[in-house]
Amino acid sequence: MTEPILRLEGVHTFIAQHHILQGVDMAVMPGRATVLLGRNGAGKSTTMRTVMGLTPAGRGSIRLGERDITKARPYEVAQAGVGFVPEDQAVIYSLSVEENFRLAMLSENEDSWRRMDTIFELFPALKKFWRSKAGVLSGGQKQMLAIARAFVGDHKLLLIDEPSKGLAPIVVDQLIDSLNHIKEHTTIILVEQNFHMASHVGSDYFILDDGRVVHQGLMEALVDDRPLKQKYLGIA
């Protein structure tokens, strides 16, 4: 039986006096796209940041394969093979598209540059603006750059937080196509409020509510479960 690539057991996270995650249990299987769903403030982004070590767990355990990363620093989590695309994209606007990619590469090798061929196929605008400052890109192009930067590295797991936020529907559809291609190569965990995107990318889902996982399963089953979507996501 395939083992989870990521496992959270009884994870509690505190931010100042606030108890955000209250015993999160989660097993993410490799080779799939897992979506974290829930209303605003449910703990989705905090879960991602806790995995990355940016908001360390106060209690519980986090394992990446066989490795315990509960107390690992963010750079150690990244070196272990986890890429992170935060909600604010973390694109450096004053650098060119090329320079953003070079910074993202842990080492410039044949595999990294081979991925660039795939990236240019998925995101042709990045090739067009290769020498341009990232600040001149549109919102959708900046999001594509942020995702592509993470994909170019040798990551076994990609955490992507709210990629569709503020984007036009046509750009969201482009991102859906790109993420569906990327998940053929890398395991993805996606935080996404746009259920259209979540349902067209996700294989599995976890619903968080008040800092706990309250439901999980296959995305195809959730699509047809109107009462569950209404209760926890506010959609029919």
Rank of each mutant, 00 (worst) to 15 (best):
K142Y: 03
S164A: 15
M144P: 03
L137C: 09
F129K: 07
L122A: 10
W130I: 02
W113C: 05
I160F: 01
M105T: 07
L106A: 14
H181I: 15
S138Q: 05
A168N: 10
E121T: 10
L126E: 09
L106Y: 09
A125H: 12
D117A: 11
F151P: 04
A150P: 03
Q141S: 05
I119C: 03
G166E: 09
T187F: 09
H181P: 04
I147M: 04
R114C: 05
S132E: 14
V152W: 01
T118R: 15
I189H: 00
V171N: 10
L158M: 06
I189E: 01
L190G: 05
R115T: 07
A125C: 11
D161W: 00
G135V: 13
P124F: 14
D111M: 10
A125Q: 15
M116T: 07
L106R: 13
G139H: 12
H155L: 00
Q141N: 06
W130R: 05
L190N: 06
V152H: 04
G140R: 04
G140A: 06
W113F: 15
A168H: 13
M105C: 12
Q174K: 15
V152P: 01
D154H: 12
N109V: 04
I176K: 02
A168M: 12
D154S: 12
L175V: 07
E108N: 12
K156C: 04
S112M: 07
N109S: 06
D173K: 11
E162L: 10
P169E: 13
I160M: 00
S107A: 10
G140K: 03
D154G: 06
T186W: 01
T187A: 13
L157F: 03
S132H: 15
W130P: 02
M105P: 03
F129P: 00
M144I: 02
M105Q: 11
L137V: 11
D154Y: 06
I182D: 04
E110I: 08
M105L: 13
R115E: 07
L106H: 13
K142D: 03
V171T: 14
L122T: 10
M105D: 07
Q143Y: 03
L122H: 08
H181S: 11
A168K: 14
T118Y: 10
A150N: 00
F129R: 08
T118M: 15
A104R: 05
L157W: 02
D173L: 05
S164P: 09
G139R: 11
E108D: 14
I160E: 00
G135S: 10
I176W: 02
H185R: 12
Q143R: 13
F151A: 05
Q174A: 13
I119F: 04
H181Q: 10
L179P: 03
L179C: 04
R131D: 14
K165N: 13
E184S: 08
F129Q: 03
M105V: 08
R149T: 01
E162A: 10
H185E: 14
K165A: 15
D117C: 07
E110S: 11
L159P: 00
H185Y: 13
E110N: 09
K127N: 11
I176T: 05
V171Q: 11
E192K: 05
I170A: 12
L158D: 03
P169V: 11
L137H: 08
F129G: 01
V172A: 01
P163W: 02
V152M: 09
T118Q: 14
I160Q: 01
A104Q: 06
K156T: 08
L175S: 04
S112R: 08
L179F: 06
S178R: 06
